[in-house]
Design a protein around this nucleic acid. Structure first.
Lengths: 221, 221
DNA sequence: CGCTTGTTGGACTGTCAAGTCCAGTTCGCG
DNA sequence: CGCGAACTGGACTTGACAGTCCAACAAGCG
């Protein structure tokens, strides 16, 4: 899978619109039915285009999927942008989590995480796609990392707390919570997972009251 | 998808062996390439059988997949059995987590969770398969629940701690950790996720000494 | 206007996958 | 042994899907 989009050097407004329409239709279908469950003919019908247009703008299905990954990433980021910007307090973190839960409730858990689902389906299928998804996660996580760094900078997080590790843990909880929510058709797992994740962050709070004083010796068992 | 296995009323030893061989081959292939990426012809070649045998023992591909879900569930439980049995202390929980991480390291994260991957791929594709996977998760989780209940019974967990909710949180962390481990080809996310989950459990410890006062969060940081 | 390049429609090909069918073989049992 | 049921081999049908091809149409530009 080389997946080089063989897009023409220049494209007119009309061409650009068609191209975008194809990617959007593909993203919607793939979100609902997965990559394997979505054929190029499906995309064709759903975007009101023809075969030749699909292969005019994309070298092959893999190239289209690559663009879908990019689109879903920006969609996820756009949806969360207002919350990601204000992630520099625990309260902000809670609002972000609440928004995720609300979104999940609204969709009934259907589809799971647009990126997580792609990750699971493509990880073992194409190394190229796997790296794209990894990069996508990384971009998403970087917003969390920055928020936690700001928390640490103004003392809401202990100086020795590692924003990256905390972020990885939060993202794990989020992805696992979304998967179980999707499987059980209930938002409960997501709520419990995010609650745990936020609790995990508060355990690394820098307040003298909560941290340090509590470092008890009894390393149980 | 009704997926009723139209197995003959009686089957000979030879027949039972063939049937089992088919399921095992299918499970191995599906673990590596997913349901969509595995054809009946693949299963046929990998199990040294013929087309007619596949459809002699299974009504259709869906019926075979249903058996694969069952097999993977029992495989997962069998592999963890020694740890699941001794889950009635935090130390036991840690050993269980360490075993999971070790397994993940050994495989390089490839394949992710045999059940989680099926969940992600099948959740939106077939309601029947989704309920099977849900049941599978439930069986798995019941072992954790029982362990946490025993912990609570002999006072290592606060009386008001909810073993079910804790289990859901742990399973979310596990699934998310495995997904990120698979995507990034690193065991790190799994380690951090399970560490968080165990920390979450210890926060609900019942010892007057430890409750609120102790939060020894495993090793690192 | 006329050339070039971008854009579009849709028929067509080759491949592969699910599922069917039937003829032949082995097994269990009286 | 011999009969019926379980089992096996593999050719075959049908449909779907990725990808190709070419002829026609639009648009920018000198």
């Amino acid at each position: 899978m080389t997946a080089q989009t063989s897009r023409p050097r220049r494209l007119t407004d009309r061409g650009a619109a068609t191209r975008a329409r194809i990617i959007e239709a593909a993203a919607d279908l793939i979100y609902l039915r997965g990559v394997g469950g979505t054929s190029m003919d499906d995309v064709m019908h759903n975007s009101a285009t023809s075969k030749s247009q699909l292969y005019h703008y994309f070298a092959d299905k893999d190239a289209l999927v690559a663009e879908v990954i990019a689109l879903q990433t920006s969609r996820v980021l756009a949806a969360q942008e207002p919350y990601l910007r204000k992630l520099d307090t625990v309260a902000g973190l809670r609002r972000w989590a609440a928004a995720l839960i609300e979104t999940n409730r609204a969709t009934g858990g259907i589809g799971g995480c647009p990126i997580g689902s792609l990750a699971s389906e493509l990880a073992e299928q194409s190394d190229y796609a796997r790296t794209l998804v990894t990069a996508s996660f990384h971009t998403w996580e970087s917003h969390l990392v920055r928020g936690l760094e700001r928390m640490r900078d103004h003392g809401e997080l202990a100086p020795d707390a590692d924003p990256r590790d905390l972020t990885t843990a939060i993202m794990s909880a989020l992805q696992g919570g979304l998967l179980l929510a999707q499987t059980t058709r209930s938002t409960r797992p997501l709520e419990l997972a995010l609650d745990m994740a936020i609790g995990h962050v508060t355990q690394h709070q820098g307040h003298p009251v909560s941290r340090g004083a509590l470092q008890c010796s009894m390393t149980n068992e």
